[in-house]
Design a protein around this nucleic acid. Structure first.
Lengths: 259, 259
DNA sequence: CGGGACTTTGAGCAAATTCAACCATTGTGG
DNA sequence: CCACAATGGTTGAATTTGCTCAAAGTCCCG
């Protein structure tokens, strides 16, 4: 258990030799992509590159929200806890994603590295100053927030109204879509998170996650070479199981049904 | 069923005699509060005041997101549907709240009037132009989005990990806190939504909502003079049942527990 | 080779849902 | 003004989904 690893320390490397943002591979996918190369210097000036080990805590719910982050490599789980230890993972974050979007004084959730992690860290105060200067950046952040809000609503639908099978199917498909969006192949999916993480993300017990995976495997829908990888064999069926909420915008007729 | 009432029509009143925003009672509580009285004219110029009847649809998930709204009177439910009609209510919105925060092309959810409703309607394009002009407004919107994101995460915790009793207790307390924040009394709570709405908001069957209310009543925690009103008799116990996730920031020790 | 963490599988159980009546309130037409 | 339909809410019984508890299997690392 590595929760006593408090927020990470600056990287050992010399930080500002050249502008690290210029060379950053994930820039285009992330908020930083809103800025012109010339403007990037201003961003680079307030950036500290840091790392974290698997299991290490980036910040804890309730901590003063002094920093915002961009993940430049690795995966993060965000979560909230109940006093008795029950945990809800509110999201997984991967390379290129923004972490810590909170314009309030304290983090609303905790964040932990799932894998070895590289991060860019921005002091919140300084970043807010930069927002005043570059409206483009602020607009981008607003769109990011808007995006996350939509994702959160999808997740509410999943948590509140989908069955275990539907939850797992939706989860696999959304990981697949995320991969495709990043130009990776969509059929072989890496699962950097544990069964427990998946359960706490989908509102299921760890055993239910495992059983459901097994069921999908027996159905021939998914194949696992090992627990940390899933290969989608029958996307059609998976989409069918997931409930296909995605098609809603097209059908729209269902909006007239009530239970 | 009144779902064929499509987006509402302009109010009968002469719209621009004086600046209606100047006199607006909910301004301070809402995004409009970000602007100086002088700047309000610009906002007023793109505003249309409209109304809607109970049950009337404001917009449907997937519709082009042409307008944003501020609720100036009444209550709204936002929801998403699965193709088979299962519904998840993603939030209730009341007087002073912003509706339709979506900087993308289509609404991510549907919105329906729960009560007789007054709204200010802003064309999205024009409002976005105004954002360029008034960074204050954009910052306010970003804070609003940030806020909603935090609320969405709380709701995920509730949906994924709380029991029926905890859900109902949390729901009552959050309605109470909202009322207090608005300067109303916190013990007598109006429930403008039906049991079905509450169930679809909390991820419960309608019968479970009803049974849990009855249980609370028998426990002497809550009293209902009628189904649309709840009076909190024993706030302590209610908070205890709710799981008190709110205190997390103080205790923090629980962050080290795992299941 | 052995310990530990994670995963899978099985059996029994419990919380919440479903199905089915019944009750209460409101509005309508005779 | 009353009867009664309609809507929404409550209550009960049976069922089910997913959880808990328990044990065994797998993989990784030292």
């Amino acid at each position: 258990m590595s929760h006593d690893n408090r927020p990470s320390r600056p990287l050992e490397l010399a930080p500002q030799i050249a502008n690290p943002c210029q060379a950053c591979a994930v820039r285009v996918h992330s908020v930083c992509g809103a800025l012109e190369p010339a403007e990037l210097n201003r961003l680079a000036a307030i950036t500290t590159q840091t790392e974290a080990e698997p299991g290490e805590t980036i910040f804890i719910e309730g901590d003063p929200a002094d920093h915002l982050f961009v993940v430049t490599g690795g995966g993060v789980r965000m979560y909230k806890l109940l006093p008795d230890g029950r945990r809800q993972i509110t999201g997984f974050i991967f390379t290129g994603d923004f972490l810590g979007l909170a314009l309030y004084d304290n983090y609303a959730y905790s964040a932990e590295a799932m894998t070895k992690l590289q991060l860019c860290r921005f002091p919140r105060r300084k970043l807010e100053k930069l927002l005043d200067e570059f409206p483009k950046l602020e607009r981008r952040l607003l769109k990011t927030a808007s995006n996350e809000l939509a994702a959160a609503q999808d997740q509410m639908l999943l948590l509140g109204r989908k069955t275990a099978r539907e939850k797992i199917a939706t989860f696999l498909l959304s990981l697949s879509e995320r991969a495709i969006r990043r130009g990776e192949r969509g059929d072989v999916i890496a699962l950097p998170m544990s069964r427990g993480d998946i359960g706490d993300y989908l509102g299921l017990a760890i055993e239910t996650v495992s059983r459901t995976f097994t069921r999908f495997k027996k159905l021939g829908v998914v194949y696992h070479s090992n627990p940390r990888e899933a290969k989608i064999l029958d996307r059609e069926t998976l989409q069918h199981i997931a409930g296909m909420a995605e098609d809603m915008s097209l059908t729209a007729t269902a909006a007239f049904r009530r239970r």
